[in-house]
Amino acid sequence: MSDAPADDAAAAGAAAAAFAERFGAAPEGVWAAPGRVNVIGEHTDYNGGSVLPVALPHTVRAAAARRDDGRLVLVSAQHPGEDADVAVADLTPGTPGGWAGYPAGIVEQVREAAAGGLSLLVDGDVPAGAGLSSSAALECAAALAVRDLLGLDWGPDDLVDVARRAENDFVGAPTGILDQSASVLCTAGHALHLDTRDRSWDQVPLDLEAAGLALLVVDSGTTHSHAESGYGERRRQCEEAARRLGVEYLCDLPGTDALAALDDGTDEGAVLLRRARHVVTEDARVAEVVDLLRAGADPRETGPVLTAGHASLRDDFEVSVPELDAVVEAALAAGAYGARMVGGGFGGSAVALVDAGAVEAVSAAVAERAGAPRSYVVVPAAGARRLR
């Protein structure tokens, strides 16, 4: 992933040219969807809570066209030699696998409308496995292409649902709606405040540049996969904790007082207490950050809330790894106002809120002390869109 993402015109041109070279004809269109970084609100989305992501300026692009032979042909510029060519009628969860499963999971849901077949080439600069939702970006770009090419009546919520089903049911990763919602709904210059319970949302202005600040994303160099990591186990633990407490979702609880009932003297009860405590306190941290931003507070005041979120993810939810802890500690020691891991955990990236003039110094300190291979400034960007 480069520090400077490709602009829309250049990105569309490159994807269209690659498609034409591979398929011998121009695509019918090029679509893009961004990755995301979550300002605050990890593992609350499938627990009925709120989240506050921003879209990255980095995107996955999908160049696509209809076919007439009933085949789905998928090509990725980032995965040479891993093309997929399968009959639309033969699509089934897990086949094709790998990167191709994400767009295939979109087409599988509309196999009758897509019976003629599709050619799709993807390109992009959102890094895989870095906790920045490259899979959701891929799904949402493919969903936009499929919608437009097949004339489907999908609004924003439909796009989110179709993309999430591809990840949940076809690929087998039990994610919530955070990643896909951010990719579809985010707008430039804002954070998306999404209530995952009733799916209401609004845009919260986030002009860090005006405050002399920057949001620095640091890739720890340790990759993860929702389908293979402990993500599913954490989700099952949350569901069990909610069942024992008699609520549908953990975020239905008004606070942490009721959580004591989970501690029944067993190791399992102690684990469930920690998992539930993270979820309930994280949901409160989202509300605190949103309230600060809406009140016009100096965004620096959100820094300690971000850091508290990392401690909770590390100690109560236990999804951080030593590499992420080292990044956070190095960033804070170098003057960051707040820092925390982002994404589902078990690897990926961290985010730090820093003075704009301190970006280079903090980046250097993190590289030296934590060995993190790359860092870059994120500006809240636009959501999924057609490029041409």
Rank of each mutant, 00 (worst) to 15 (best):
A358I: 00
V366D: 03
A311G: 15
Y337V: 01
L149T: 10
P27Q: 08
Y46V: 13
L292F: 08
R236S: 13
V122H: 03
R234N: 03
A104E: 14
R274M: 11
A227G: 08
P5R: 07
E368F: 01
N168P: 03
R314C: 01
R199T: 06
V247I: 10
T223D: 07
D207P: 04
D69A: 04
L74E: 08
A104L: 15
V377P: 01
T222M: 07
A276T: 13
V379C: 05
E288G: 14
G35R: 08
D153P: 00
A261W: 15
D8V: 13
A9M: 01
P96E: 11
T222F: 06
V126Q: 02
A372I: 03
T222S: 06
S119T: 10
Y249F: 15
R243K: 10
S312T: 00
V54Q: 11
L138I: 10
V351W: 02
G94D: 06
T196R: 09
G172P: 02
D8E: 12
V321K: 00
G151N: 13
V107F: 05
E288S: 13
V271W: 11
C238N: 07
D267N: 10
L178V: 13
G81H: 12
H43W: 15
P27D: 14
E112S: 13
N168S: 05
A211K: 00
R386I: 06
R274C: 05
G13F: 12
G345C: 09
A214K: 01
D85N: 10
A214Q: 05
G345W: 07
S200L: 09
D263V: 15
L250K: 12
V319L: 08
G309E: 00
G105Q: 11
C140M: 14
L159R: 06
D123N: 14
A370F: 02
V126G: 02
L313Y: 12
A33C: 13
A64T: 04
D90S: 12
A210Y: 03
W99Q: 01
G116V: 08
V184S: 06
L72S: 12
D90C: 10
G24S: 12
R234G: 02
A114D: 03
R199M: 08
C251N: 14
G343F: 07
D179Y: 09
V286I: 12
A242R: 06
P373N: 06
A227K: 15
G94F: 09
G344A: 14
V377A: 04
